[in-house]
Simulated assay, not measured.
Amino acid sequence: MSTQDAALSLFVTGTDTEIGKTFVSSALLRGFVREGLQAAAMKPIAAGAFELNGELHNEDADQLDAASSVLLPPAMRTPYLLKEPAAPHIAAALENVTFDIDHIVACHREALNRADIVVVEGVGGFRVPLTATQDTADLAVALKLPVVLVVGMRLGCISHALLTAEAIAARGLTLAGWVANRVDPDMTFPDENIASIRAHLAREYDAPLLGVVPHLNPLAPELAAAQLDINRLLQTLRHAQR
């Protein structure tokens, strides 16, 4: 550990799929590295793997590794890597895989021994089914982590953000903050939408806006990191750890 005795960690979720969770997670990792932290990433469940040089890879997991300063063994970073690019429970059924949340928790516990901070990226939205009785919200609860919510700024985002924040709070988890990610460059009234979400989440959950990530093409996590209030997030994580 380079700057604190106990490692920090957070769970990154989103208002939907394809709204930039991996991009924002990579930006957070770059920001933590800039602050001198040994930063590692976990993508516990990833669907959509491809073979490269005889090994299975996943695009999201590879992007997270590229932004990390500590590389975890693939089996620890992504305990469940599925080939089919489908909802996790569907891909798992096709490949005869059963998700074991306790195994993911054990991998996370070991990851905390290897880094100052571990960013855990969820899969899809906050309540994507994993089994007949468990979803990704159950995974976040089992990990006992503060949550950062990525809001994809597009039509309908206000309701999606408020519903997801409500679901996070209902599970007894701390919403450590949220990030507005400009996924739709043609969205009308983006600033007004951001202001509305910001007011609701601050008032109802004391959750700050950690930053607004502009639409970037190509994606550049290092540029996005500059838009995020990394120090404020670290203060929240350290407070939650006490």
Rank of each mutant, 00 (worst) to 15 (best):
D100N: 15
I101D: 00
I101N: 00
D102W: 01
I104V: 13
I104T: 05
C107L: 07
C107H: 06
C107D: 02
A111P: 05
A111V: 06
A111S: 07
L112T: 09
L112V: 07
L112W: 05
L112F: 05
L112I: 04
N113R: 14
R114K: 12
R114P: 00
D116E: 14
I117P: 01
I117T: 08
V118C: 00
V119Y: 08
V119H: 04
V119R: 04
V120W: 12
V120C: 09
G122R: 11
G122S: 11
V123A: 14
V123F: 00
G124A: 01
G124D: 12
G125L: 11
F126H: 11
R127W: 00
R127I: 05
V128D: 03
V128Q: 09
V128A: 02
P129R: 04
P129G: 06
L130S: 07
L130P: 04
L130N: 13
T131D: 08
A132C: 03
A132D: 15
Q134N: 08
Q134K: 14
Q134C: 01
Q134V: 01
D135E: 01
D135T: 06
A137R: 11
A137Q: 09
A137F: 01
A137T: 07
L139I: 12
L139T: 11
L139M: 15
V141A: 11
V141R: 14
K144M: 12
K144Q: 15
L145W: 04
L145K: 09
P146V: 13
V147W: 07
V147Q: 05
V147C: 02
V148G: 04
V148N: 05
V148T: 13
L149N: 05
L149S: 06
L149I: 03
V150C: 09
V151C: 13
V151R: 08
G152A: 12
G152P: 11
G152K: 14
M153W: 07
R154W: 00
L155R: 15
G156H: 13
C157E: 07
C157L: 13
C157Y: 08
I158A: 09
S159W: 01
S159C: 09
H160N: 02
A161W: 12
L162T: 14
L163N: 05
T164H: 03
T164M: 02
T164Y: 05
A165Q: 10
A165D: 06
A165G: 14
E166L: 07
E166A: 03
A167S: 15
A167R: 15
I168G: 01
I168Y: 01
I168A: 00
I168V: 14
A169L: 10
A170D: 15
A170T: 14
A170F: 08
R171S: 03
G172K: 13
G172R: 09
G172Q: 13
G172M: 09
T174H: 02
A176T: 12
A176G: 13
G177H: 06
W178D: 00
A180I: 11
A180G: 12
V183E: 03
D184C: 00
D184V: 02
D184E: 06
P185Y: 03
D186S: 12
